[in-house]
Write a protein that binds this DNA or RNA. Structure first.
Length: 417
RNA sequence: GUGGGUGUAGCUCAGUUGGUUAGAGCGCCUGGUUGUGGCCCAGGAGGUCGCGGGUUCAAAUCUCGUCACUCACCCCA
């Protein structure tokens, strides 16, 4: 059994579960297209530098979570740990005319070598969107509204939208310096982790849950107050847009995202009840500079963890999507009827019907059991008598009513029911 | 990478202070006279007790190791 188990952190997804995945995918396509986003499918692996350059060399993802390998040509490749970098690479490669904008969404597997836990896999799936190019100021709020629209249609209730700003690229150094100064002054009161973060990633300290650090964090200078006036104005405009769209949000100065490319608006949708993980989706505005490109490419987007959306829907008691079931189940009495039904099944399928049938040539009882279990609303029964009469008995499995129907009319009769 | 919990039938799990043929429910198969599912009844198939050492007359049970699953830390979707 262990030998056939999938690699740790990966899983096999069977039909009943796939039905749930389809809900996520279909809903995404339906909603995102209304906002002008079309699907983009990019490779699951890229040159490693596509990720290291855009996510940032110092981020945890790049430092210890990437599945990297060398291919036969000696190229250093990496299984994508997130979707944005590859999407941006593809759009840049395709070329975006000056002053134009591209809107795409994507969906598919991502890979990170972390220790698996509830809502965290090594091969996990994200559905995300990116608006790239000349991203107008209004896109931040529109994009967030679309995400909340998605949550709503997925019937995920009780989730919360957190909002913050990182300021512009020019804000980053001064803000980090200010935070570093503040926390350095209190370093002796902080936990070991935060002392380490002080040197590696100051902003992460804001996330610390340790009792002793909380007091210090609460007194820390707010990131928003440290921003340049233009950046603060930008953030205020995004908030005003959200108010206009009727989107509820909570400004969380402690919200930090793990990737370096974010600027200005960052947001996260959080939900309690899927283990230790709380983030269902996250995103923001970003800038990525590719080798050979003079200017950074701008974008706004988000990604949602599909496994987590599934868990959240479960926690919200959303009824499971139904799996595909046959429209009709064929039951045969005797070898002649079996042979006739074997051919009939094929014919009905060509007429667009989903047809089930027991191929074991068993007795009628097991066939009827199989018919009932299949969930087919109708059963078609044929024996010698029906064959000579050129009819088939159509049985309604719910009411138990049955009627002889000419075989030539079967497809039509079953299709209308 | 660091810790905790758990590995017994296809699934969910019992298995008493180590004791010989390892159980239940669900599911599956066959029947309950002629060609009718769900309910009920009877019977049946199915297990290297995760794997490998050790202790013992005797190990599913104790011990060590290992692997897997799982939860949490870290971090994130």
């Amino acid at each position: 059994m262990a030998k056939t188990a999938p690699i740790p952190g990966t899983s096999d997804i069977f039909a009943d579960e796939v039905a749930e995945w389809r809900v996520l995918e279909d809903t995404a396509r339906s909603i995102f297209s209304r906002y002008g986003y079309g699907e983009l499918r990019t490779p699951v692996f890229e040159r490693t530098e596509v990720f290291t350059r855009s996510l940032g060399d110092e981020t945890d993802v790049v430092q210890k979570e990437m599945y990297s390998f060398e291919d036969r040509g000696g190229r250093n490749l990496t299984l994508r740990p997130e979707g944005t970098a590859g999407v941006m690479r593809a759009l840049v490669n395709a070329g975006i005319p000056q002053g134009d904008e591209r809107r795409v969404y994507y969906q598919g597997p991502m890979f990170r070598g972390e220790r698996p836990a509830a809502g965290r896999k090594r091969q996990f799936h994200q559905v995300g969107v990116e608006a790239v190019g000349k991203v107008a100021a209004g896109i931040d709020a529109e994009c967030i509204a679309m995400l909340m629209h998605y949550m709503e249609d997925l019937e995920i209730t009780g989730c919360k939208l957190l909002l913050n700003s990182r300021g512009s690229a020019e804000d980053r150094a001064p803000v980090a310096a200010a935070l570093h100064d503040y926390f350095a002054a209190h370093s002796d009161e902080m936990c070991d982790d935060c002392q380490r973060r002080l040197e590696t990633n100051v902003s992460r300290i804001m996330d610390c849950k340790t009792e002793g650090c909380r007091g210090i964090i609460d007194q820390a200078p707010g990131v928003l107050e440290l921003l340049k006036p233009e950046s603060a104005d930008y953030f205020a405009a995004v908030c005003a847009d959200l108010d206009r769209l009727g989107i509820a949000y909570e400004i969380d100065p402690r919200l930090v995202r793990g990737l370096d490319y974010y600027v200005h608006t960052v947001f996260e949708v959080v939900f309690d009840g899927i283990g230790a993980q709380t983030a269902l989706a996250g995103g923001g505005r970003y800038e990525i500079t590719f080798p050979g490109q003079k200017r950074p490419v701008l974008g706004v987007g988000f990604a949602a963890g599909m496994e987590r959306l599934l868990l959240a829907r479960e926690a919200c008691k959303v009824p499971a999507a139904s799996v595909d079931q046959p429209d009709v189940f064929l039951v045969s009495l005797g070898d002649d009827a079996f042979d006739a039904n074997f051919a009939l099944a094929q014919q009905l399928r060509r007429n667009g019907l989903a047809v089930g049938m027991d191929l074991e040539r068993r007795g009628m009882k097991p066939q009827m059991r199989a018919a009932g279990k299949s969930g087919a609303p109708y059963t078609v029964i044929r024996g010698e008598q029906e064959l000579t009469d050129g009819v088939a008995v159509v049985k309604n499995m719910e009411t138990g009513d049955q009627q002889p129907v000419p075989v030539t009319d079967l497809a039509a009769v079953l299709s209308t029911n």
